[in-house]
Measured scan of single mutants.
Amino acid sequence: KPRVVLAPEEKEALKRAYQQKPYPSPKTIEDLATQLNLKTSTVINWFHNYRSRIRR
């Protein structure tokens, strides 16, 4: 699969959402995906990867 490249404003929106709730509910994930015009799997993976990046 080709890698999804996020626009800077999409990254900022995801980071703001992460600061509010690092483990978002499925509803929140769905809303974010719709709002940013991304797949839910992309949003889920971003949160998973961002949490692991923060832990390093």
Score class of each variant (00 low, 15 high):
Q35Y: 11
L6V: 05
S52Y: 03
K11Q: 12
I29W: 11
H48L: 06
S41K: 15
I44E: 13
R51H: 09
P8W: 01
H48W: 02
K39A: 12
R16T: 05
L32V: 03
R53A: 11
Q20T: 15
Y23P: 12
Q19D: 09
L32A: 03
A17I: 05
S25C: 08
L6P: 03
E9W: 01
P26K: 14
L32R: 01
K15C: 09
I44M: 11
E10W: 00
A7Y: 06
F47P: 00
L38E: 04
R56E: 15
K39T: 11
E30I: 11
K15G: 04
A13M: 13
L14F: 01
L36F: 05
Q20M: 15
R16F: 05
R51Q: 05
L38H: 09
S25F: 04
A7R: 10
I44A: 04
N37W: 10
F47W: 01
Q35P: 02
K27F: 04
Y18S: 08
T42G: 04
S52G: 07
Y18G: 08
S25M: 15
I44Y: 03
A33D: 00
D31N: 08
V43W: 06
D31G: 11
P8L: 05
I44H: 01
N37C: 07
K27A: 05
E12Y: 05
T40W: 14
N37I: 00
A13R: 09
A33E: 00
S41Y: 02
N49L: 04
L14T: 03
K15H: 13
A7W: 00
P24R: 11
A17D: 06
E12V: 04
L38D: 03
T28N: 14
A17N: 02
I29K: 03
A17V: 08
N45V: 00
I29V: 13
P24Y: 02
L32C: 01
P2E: 15
I44W: 03
L36E: 01
N45T: 05
I44S: 13
I29F: 08
I44Q: 03
P2F: 15
R3Q: 10
A7T: 12
R56L: 08
N49R: 08
R53D: 06
Y50T: 13
T42F: 09
H48A: 09
Y50I: 11
A17M: 05
L6Y: 02
K21E: 15
Y50H: 10
L6H: 02
R3I: 03
V5G: 04
L14M: 10
V43I: 15
L36T: 01
V4D: 07
V4Q: 07
Y18H: 10
P2L: 13
E12P: 02
P2V: 12
K27E: 08
F47R: 00
E9V: 03
F47H: 00
A7N: 13
E12S: 06
K21G: 10
R51K: 13
Q35R: 13
S25W: 14
T40M: 15
D31P: 03
K21L: 09
V5I: 05
Q35G: 10
Q35W: 11
V5A: 12
K27T: 05
R55D: 06
A33L: 11
W46H: 00
S52P: 02
I54P: 06
Y18I: 05
R53N: 07
E12T: 03
Y50P: 00
V4A: 04
L6E: 06
K11N: 12
Q19R: 07
S52W: 05
L6M: 13
K27S: 10
P2Q: 14
Y18F: 12
A17R: 02
R16Q: 10
S52R: 07
H48V: 09
P24I: 00
I29H: 10
E12G: 06
A7V: 01
P2N: 15
V5R: 04
P8I: 15
Q19G: 11
E30G: 12
F47I: 03
A33F: 08
S52K: 14
I54N: 09
Y18R: 09
V4G: 13
A17W: 13
